[in-house]
Design a protein around this nucleic acid. Sequence first.
DNA 1: TTTGTAAGTAAACAAACGTTTACTTACTTT
DNA 2: AAAGTAAGTAAACGTTTGTTTACTTACAAA
Lengths: 214, 214
Amino acid sequence: MQYHLAFPIAGENIFTMRPKNLEKEEAIRSIALQIIAAEGLENLSMQKLAKAANVSPRTIYIKYENKEDFLIKLFIDEVLGAYEKAVLENFSQEMDFAEGVKKIWSNTFQYLKNNRPHFALIQHGKASPLLNKAFQKENIKEGHFFAPIHHFLALNMEKGIIRNFPDDVHRAMLFSPLLDLVNEYFDYLDRPVQIITEDVLLECCEAIIKGMLK
Amino acid sequence: MQYHLAFPIAGENIFTMRPKNLEKEEAIRSIALQIIAAEGLENLSMQKLAKAANVSPRTIYIKYENKEDFLIKLFIDEVLGAYEKAVLENFSQEMDFAEGVKKIWSNTFQYLKNNRPHFALIQHGKASPLLNKAFQKENIKEGHFFAPIHHFLALNMEKGIIRNFPDDVHRAMLFSPLLDLVNEYFDYLDRPVQIITEDVLLECCEAIIKGMLK
DNA sequence: TTTGTAAGTAAACAAACGTTTACTTACTTT
DNA sequence: AAAGTAAGTAAACGTTTGTTTACTTACAAA
């Protein structure tokens, strides 16, 4: 007698099925991000994606219901998930305020700098109603993204270390200049002079910290 | 004998032609912005636009070479031009630093709050490679957008009032949290509690000013 | 080895895409 | 009133879109 999963998933007989080729799934997602970064979300089509990923269009529809479903899952699961994990690495909400903010800035910059396609979709997420709404829904359903940072801010507000602002205002001060600098880092990548250096980043971070303190 | 323009524009006999209906041109641009705001840049098509503007597709192509040309001109001429004008209203580069920044913040917030479709395209401008590149090109060709603000920052840097940063870093600190707050203003529009009030905005502005000062 | 399953493919679907063709309309000048 | 122009329209162009159909392949269980 064979051991089975206690609760086999309805509609899926996992014992006689051909296993999914995970490399193909990964290729689809990775190449989608590359196309979006290079040509913009408005120029991503399912057929172009399938061809670039060397896969039949049908293969994409095994895992995703339709194009919108694909984009939302790409954004929420693939991009925001990894982004959050990278930002929070070695960060703790008990850190000293300035120390914590610097850790967040350094993590964020390093990660985005090395993952331009992910950054591109994050940028689209602010502009596209589809992705924007999906993010808000997810944020309500699953508890907030970046919850440790929210606690960190709440803690420092209680202690009277930083100003009393709604959470979203703190988040705007903390992240939006930083993402703008990443954008500029990429804009200037091909030019003779590099403007966004580690030094400038750190100084700007200190300026933001000063502004947030009481 | 009739008086003619000294240099009639090649290919255009302006004396016997049927005059353009400027209302149609305006309708095309205005409705394009509305579609982009409601459905995203990725869901704007020329045929959809023509139908919504109650115009033949061909009419759009009288003024614009193709879709990309249309989007770029919509972004640069219609949106960024009006945006810059609104932001700089009653602003002077000789203003006291804090006073000047507050004026910019209040102008920007008021304008964007009342022109959501324009704001939507500005957001897309940061994500879409097409618009992003067009903006950079224009910025180099025509002198910088927001030149008075650049001078204002340079002046206050010379005087030793604010920190020494590259221009783009100052701009990131000045504008990006503000635009994020506008985004949140719209996100929260339909909810019971309004989070981004004039008071919060002013306090956040003061925090940013504090951070920028030496 | 056979069999059953879902993974995966190639080709095709109707619909929508960006753009153009062929034509009519509205206005100005003569 | 007649003539000439570009503005503007309706319909269509070939292509590409998102998605599906009909089929084959690869694997695990029996």
